[in-house]
């Protein structure tokens, strides 16, 4: 029986895989390939001119720099929040735990106008910062606030399950061997959390780089000062400069694909380290 080797008990392989591939191609792969094909309409020189124009380069610096910074802030505070949620009891904990996912559930435009209202000169937070000479809304600092908002759950939700799975024995053993609390954190807990922390950082960064809705309201969108890269694509589109918009999109897509590979690698590392799926 030559067929025995490929015999499957369960039905439906061909139809489900066939549908999966067809739908994936139709909705994702073919549309995305349009970006790359459209870019080839530009010569290499033209492409380079578009993506290295000073105004565009300024958006890269802003988008990438602030995204990195926001992801770093989220890594620190996300770890603290995850630690508090896993290890301490406090009133309202279930509410806090549920609301951590708010940035996943709240539409970005809503987040954008809410943050702008808070940090405007007469806003709840802005009115206290303004006398100190700190302006947040309509400045690059406002973009940072929005990016911190949307990235927070990524770090908390990747670190939290790993923290929950930690055996208390590990720390007890370290304590009985004479380690101080800080040493235990630094040399026992942190190495276990490291892959998850990096994954959370990368996820928050990837989300922040492409973010549009929550940023444009608070950014002020001044060329060379507070313009993010996704906005640059919109600006080009509004000027009917499709090739230019596509060229910048290509640069962003390359970065996204690279990040996706890095994140997959990190997640594989996490599960190898901790024996968890994902």
């Amino acid at each position: 029986m030559a067929a025995a080797k490929t015999f499957r008990v369960l039905p439906g392989f061909n139809i489900t895989l066939g549908f999966t591939l067809a739908y994936l191609s139709l909705i994702v792969l073919i549309p995305l390939s349009a970006v790359f094909l459209k870019t080839t309409e530009l010569g290499l020189d033209q492409f380079w001119n578009v993506v290295s124009a000073p105004r565009v380069v300024a958006t890269y610096k802003l988008s990438f720099g602030l995204s990195l910074l926001a992801a770093a802030i989220n890594t620190v505070f996300g770890l603290m929040l995850a630690w508090a949620l896993v290890r301490y009891s406090f009133p309202g904990k279930r509410l806090v735990d549920a609301l951590v996912d708010l940035p996943f559930a709240l539409p970005t435009a809503v987040a954008g106008i809410a943050l702008t209202a808070l940090y405007a000169k007469n806003g709840w937070i802005g009115q206290y910062l303004d006398p100190l000479g700190i302006q947040v809304a309509f400045k690059p600092l406002g973009i940072l606030v929005a990016l911190v908002f949307i990235g927070l759950p990524f770090v908390v939700r990747t670190v939290q399950p790993i923290l929950e799975d930690l055996d208390t024995e590990l720390e007890e053993a370290a304590t009985s061997l004479g380690a101080r609390r800080w040493q235990i954190f630094r040399h026992v807990i942190l190495p276990i959390l490291l892959p998850a922390l990096l994954t959370g950082f990368a996820l928050a960064f990837a989300r922040a780089v492409g973010e549009y809705g929550s940023v444009i309201f608070i950014a002020g969108n001044i060329p060379m000062v507070s313009e993010i890269t996704p906005l640059m694509i919109i600006t080009k589109l509004e000027q009917y400069d499709y090739a230019g918009a596509t060229a910048i999109a290509t640069v962003m897509l390359m970065l996204s694909f690279t990040l996706l590979l890095v994140i997959n690698g990190l997640q594989a590392w996490t599960s190898k380290r901790t024996g968890r799926d994902r």
Binding site: T20, L21, L24, V28, L29, I30, P31, L32, A34, V35, K38, A206, V209, G210, E211, Y212, G213, P230, L231, I233, I234, L237, Y240, Y242, A245, T246, A249, M252, L253, S256, F257, L259, L260, L261, I263, N264
Partner: peptide, 28 residues
């Protein structure tokens, strides 16, 4: 295949809109 399914998560929403303009827009 799993990585490809994840793709839309890592693509900026603006680019998600752009691809359909490139396909079906007036100059698409």
């Amino acid at each position: 295949l799993i990585t490809l399914i994840d793709l839309p998560f890592s693509v900026s929403p603006v680019i998600a809109g752009l691809v359909f303009v490139l396909l079906f827009g007036a100059q698409g």
